[in-house]
Write a protein that binds this DNA or RNA. Sequence first.
DNA 1: AAGGTGGTCAACCGCACGATA
DNA 2: ATATCGTGCGGTTGACCACCT
Length: 291
Amino acid sequence: MGRAPCCDKANVKKGPWSPEEDAELKAYIEKHGTSGNWIALPHKIGLKRCGKSCRLRWLNYLRPNIKHGGFSEEEDQIILGLYISIGSRWSIIAAQLPGRTDNDIKNYWNTKLKKKLLGDYKQINRSKIPPQYSPTNYQEHSNFPGAHSEILTRASAAEAMQLHMYYNNEDDKSRAMVWPVYHHVEESQLTNSITSAKFVQQHAYPNDTASESSGPVSVVVTSGSTMGFNPMQEEKDQLLELDCFKELIEQEGTSWWSSDVEGFGEKAAGAVLSCSADSLLLDQEYMNLML
DNA sequence: AAGGTGGTCAACCGCACGATA
DNA sequence: ATATCGTGCGGTTGACCACCT
């Protein structure tokens, strides 16, 4: 048996709100508040609307100090940074942008910002991006998530991967300061040393032996063998994570993994960015942004 | 001019979660 | 411990519009 509906669907109005309905809802809430019960609110006002619909209308359009459209460059940067680090948690992102609603940001991202950023990405000098990830070679390396637009549109992880590369532009150091250095590691090296956190760290920090034992570091993704590391963890916990990824590989084939992989947890969110014949290591700075 | 296509955005849906009985 | 309920959230839909063919 399914859950009981929150309201009588046959007797509630759906679709766009009229100015009269807006005025009634606004006037009532400004005078009486919501009383902490949205379900009862439309009955009190006499509106033939679902309580949830009233709540949405108020939060997204009627409450004071709501801003619509006209996103600034600074807001773009905040949205982008948060999207890459926490994914599509629109309510959290909205909380960082006063006057913006989660719905607004979600629409803005899906219809404009994503295209704008990926469009920018296509224009940059890609000389520092490994050739197998160059758009001109995508078709020859079809297991890279960005190779197929239909996958890219579904894959926030793949989008993040492209944005990551975009922000790793050597010609614009202001971006590189924020985003991690791209490390390319041969798959054969990884499979031979797949359980060695030290190996991963040496590649993530080839010139920094001091960092060898500090903090969560890296995630490596290869075709058919994927893992995440936190060198500070107990070995048994690392193995648990490995099991988690192995299970995912079996379930998903050689696909990629989004940030909200069940069982892996928030700690690695966004760390798994690609699944290809090659690999990606993320540096400490990036992990710090995410944790 | 008419039909097709794609972009935008308000609104809806269904699910998860926390509070409470 | 369990069921119920309200709320919040993210994904999706559909109406509307502008532009293209």
